[in-house]
Amino acid sequence: MTGELAAYLGLVLGLPVAVGVAVTLILRRWRLNAIGALAAVVFAVSFVAETGMPSIPPSEKWKALPTLAIAIAIISVLGAASRRFGSIPCLSTAFGLAFGLLFTMPVWSPVDRALAVLAAAILCASLESLFRRCACISLPASVSLALLGLGTVFFFSGFATLVLPCVASAIAAAIGSLGARSLRGTGAALAALLLGIALCGDAYDQENVPRASWLLLLLAPHSLWLGQLPAMGWLRGSAATGARITLAAALVAIAIVLASRGHISSDGTDDSEDADPMQGIYGAVPH
């Protein structure tokens, strides 16, 4: 069983990360630092390793996520490659992909969709803008934390299939973007990837994970604004980096705590049996 588990983790975590690092190395030969492409490729590879090759068209709506991820990876590379284009076409495409996914998600009311479109536009524009201004370790760190948080919240939401692809993306984003001088051109794509994953998480949630959890995870990378705003000009250097990472980690931690509480009280009770997060499909530990 241990060997089997190791092989499984190697397939769903190790292989995608290795592919992601290889992609990063290839891109760097052309002086491209596409963290969006890296996270998206690793997510797609891990997703396929976990669920098998999705059919085209996908048999279930959430299985369109690898398609979204691959499209995002391409946009991300184009965005990083083309200084001449500027960020607007990439931003528009990334937002458009998220927008399209959003409008096909089940059980979303028109008001939810309208708010989500607004949020998607703001998140894509904000992250793209940050990626153009900022080039420090806090950037990949906050993206990794957000992806790791998504994986954890998926565990609490009962959507186990997406746990490891998010974790693999988080690892790859942390490793692959080390030493990157500039990550411009890929922020919108990365925001669209995070948004697509979180949208699926909220739409298919069976465990009453509050929407605030998903939103906080989407906001975590935007903690990079700390130190970028005019009023925060005094915050510089390693202090700024530390503050940004701490803020991102705090947002992710709050999201996880909210998700775990929603999971515990999903039936309105908080008795010890229901408080066991391993109950359900995983089984229950005898008390």
Binding site: P57, K61, P89, T93, G96, L97, G100
Partner: peptide, 21 residues
């Protein structure tokens, strides 16, 4: 390159993929 057209094209593409499902 009109960004609005790109956005609409991308949205339409994603919707077509999902609508096909």
């Amino acid at each position: 390159m009109n960004p609005y057209l790109i956005m609409l094209a991308a949205a339409a593409l994603m919707r077509v993929v999902l609508a096909l499902s």
